[in-house]
Amino acid sequence: MIPISYYLILSAIVFLTGVVGVLIRRNIIAILLSVELMLNATNINFVAFSDHLQDLGGQVFVFFALTVAAAEVAVGLAIIIALHRSRSTINVEEFNLLKW
């Protein structure tokens, strides 16, 4: 039997990797991939606690998180395509329309 803290450590490592990826990558697609990493880290946490507490609610919430992830990917990639059409780049440092 694996203690729950191992799953928490694994999830924390994956989540922090995602945060580092969002902060250091310049490619906007790689930034979205890092967001997927963070969502998967929370899913690992949900399922680990669902098994630990013997409660199915965690698994149902992973289902909803998956739905939101699919919606996020669809809208995010559409925004990327629109951006690439207007600026013909996907480097985040070129997008400074809203900067002051």
Binding site: L10, I13, V14, T17, G21, L37, I44
Partner: peptide
């Protein structure tokens, strides 16, 4: 999981 997530970044 840890190795491949680090590789993603």
């Amino acid at each position: 999981i840890v190795i491949t997530s680090i590789l993603v970044v």
